[in-house]
Design a protein around this nucleic acid. Sequence first.
RNA 1: GGCCCGUUCGUCUAUCGGUUAGGACACCAGGUUUUCAACCUGGUAAGAGGGGUUCGACUCCCCUACGGGCUGCCA
Length: 467
Amino acid sequence: MCADVVTRFAPSPTGSLHIGGGRTALFNWLYARGRGGKFLLRIEDTDRERSTPEATAAILKGLTWMGLDWDGEVVSQFDRKDRHAQVAHEMLARGTAYKCFSTAEDIAAFRAQAEADGASYALFQSPWRGADPATYPDAPYVIRMMAPRTGETVIHDEVQGIVTFRNDQLDDMIVLRSDLTPTYMLAVVVDDHDMGVTHVIRGDDHLNNAARQTMVYQAMDWAVPVWAHIPLIHGPDGKKLSKRHGATAVGDYQAMGYPAAGMRNYLTRLGWAHGDEELFSTEQALAMFDLAGIGRAPARLDFKKLESTCGWHMARSDNAALLHEIEAYLDAATLPPLSDAQRDGLSRALYCVKDRAKTFPELIEKAHFVLISRPVVADEGAAKALDSVSRGILKTLTPRLQTVSWTKDALEPLMAEIAAENGIGFGKLAAPLRAGLAGRTATPSVFDMMLVIGRDETIARLNDAAD
RNA sequence: GGCCCGUUCGUCUAUCGGUUAGGACACCAGGUUUUCAACCUGGUAAGAGGGGUUCGACUCCCCUACGGGCUGCCA
């Protein structure tokens, strides 16, 4: 158990990267990376009907966005089919598997008979188990595991504890299909063994499979890995997360403008706890993460908390890195890219907008005053604000802005003075100023906006607005 | 149907037999504020139900209810 840790993420390429899969990958990544181990990636593409290269690309893209890097080349399970077949035949040679010539019709008939006999459901029992090879017909066959029919198979799971299965509940599963391709049950075990995987961390929908897979390990005399079956993520209504809950793909979250660091933090904390730690950097997560902190109950997705977590990370982001992430977001959300002027303006405005936004769209909304192009075309709200107080205020204000030193501390008393001269409150004065600077509803203070835009341009904008 | 897993505030969770059951998000109230936001303070709010075991159970055992998973020549 003290050997170097090797974990893996093994999605099937039948769609985009599911948020639950993303979390599974994250747990594996955290566990391995936090211990100086390896994190491998394997694409389980043995189902040729449903596997697509587009899906593989989407999965890789999703992982990359989440910041989860893997070691070595991506393994294609399909490419290893010869090795799988070889192992199946070795099981045959060892007498831990057998050829079965039963057809789909035979199996259906078996079930129908069992039902007629009063059983509501029965595991298929192949008549070819233990049959004399001399009686084998010249027909297609599958290779079935010769599963023990008595005793029990015990799973020592780091999350679920000790789980015991009665062997008479497990059937002789197929390991090699009649077309000589492996089934999932065989392929995972062979691949995990060959890849040197020490810890299998995956969704608890595989808990039952762990028992079957253990039998394969035993049939081959291979060391069984450490199991950790983590609960699935559910939607806000407690049901299994599905399309009707809205965003299920990692890419959806990227397109909605959640920063990757916030996603990592939130997803790490979803179903895992380390005392009262709620907000932490990825470095801290790496140091803290362990299997013992994983809960056993499915967790529900809570967008409010996700947003809150993301806001925390956004406020702590390095400006340059944040800018890059914003541009990547724009691209992912198929929004127009930043112009040079906008990039420059945004980089100067980040200090006063990043700590009040939870998502990128929200941040962009708050940075509207620096992103909008001149001349400022006041929108309806801005026009109203301008009209509500005399535009003359702006006319008296702008010349005086040139005489005051350009700092927040100096601007503030000037504003107060002008507000008093006009017999209006500070808030009333701020409204036309904001409109002139093209700030929207939720913005930084007018002082921040002035400072960010710069002296000459600010005055020009205010003049524009006052005309 | 059979087997397996799960169930603490609305949500994520802490607790590893003895706590006024703690924290976070959300919500409510108040404060601060030139707007919105942010921020600060305070508050409401939980052990699914029933049996045991024990001096003492959220913690251990059993039953029930509810939720989830598996039961494929899918993964």
